[in-house]
Amino acid sequence: MLLTFEKMGAWRWGLGLICALVALFLLLPIVFIIALSFGDSRWLIFPPPGWTLRWYEELFADPRWIESALTSAKIGLIVTVFSVALGLLASIGLVRGRFKGKAVLRTFFLTPMVLPVVILAVALYALFLRIGLSGTLVGFVIAHVVIALPFSIIAISGALETFDPAIEDAAVVCGASPWEARLRVTLPAISHGLFSAAIFSFLISWDEVVIAIFMASPTLQTLPVRIWGTLRQDLTPVIAAASTLLVALTILLMLAAALLRKGKKA
């Protein structure tokens, strides 16, 4: 009866306690940075002796923070477009195509996901130094598309696999041109896959640190690089303020995704 909560007796409390502790462990850092970002102690004393918005003011007063956030957003959006487009094409080929070595190719497409990022970062760093892409926007985008593509392919091909191509044939039989059928039947049917591919791709680029550290130049820095650089100098509460904004962004995205799922079910 271990899968029936009501019949677990005292074990319920044991399990509940472990979960409460793990939840505490998972929430602690998040709650902690949010509190620190509003605390007026430069030395990060907790609980803070008083409350202030000073760190947010400092954050917004420094144009370099804004600039790096904009850079991150720009790179993230471009990466999203390419990752979803390439992912869609590759997924169609992988799901519907019939050719030898399809399974091997699929595994190959997913490899960047398992390879330690540091290897790719170092390898691309060397290559980009040679071909002059180091420290450029193009370099950033290429590198991030490489690591975002597997997630895009998983999300889109997952959606495509559950969509019966016979429905598309049915649309054509009903009189739609093949392209019309794709646009009006297939694309809407896999839109949730495209959407999660887009979210994954953006977040991967937005949060990516390792490649960014190698790729960045003094004039082109993403937000993670900026945080990384500051972190290595000192643990100023300004980072807490920046982090809090990032947490808020995460919560917003999660809520949006949850709402979208709910809307889909209704």
Binding site: L86, A90, G93, G97, F99, F109, P112, L127, V146, P165
Partner: peptide, 28 residues
């Protein structure tokens, strides 16, 4: 080539995969 009614012709349909493949070969 359509991937709807002309699905049998996809036998060699690696065209769709090419862009991703080229990207990964060149930059991975």
């Amino acid at each position: 080539s359509t991937f709807a009614l002309a699905r049998p012709r996809m036998r060699k349909g690696t065209g769709m995969i090419l862009p991703a493949l080229v990207l990964l070969l060149a930059f991975f």
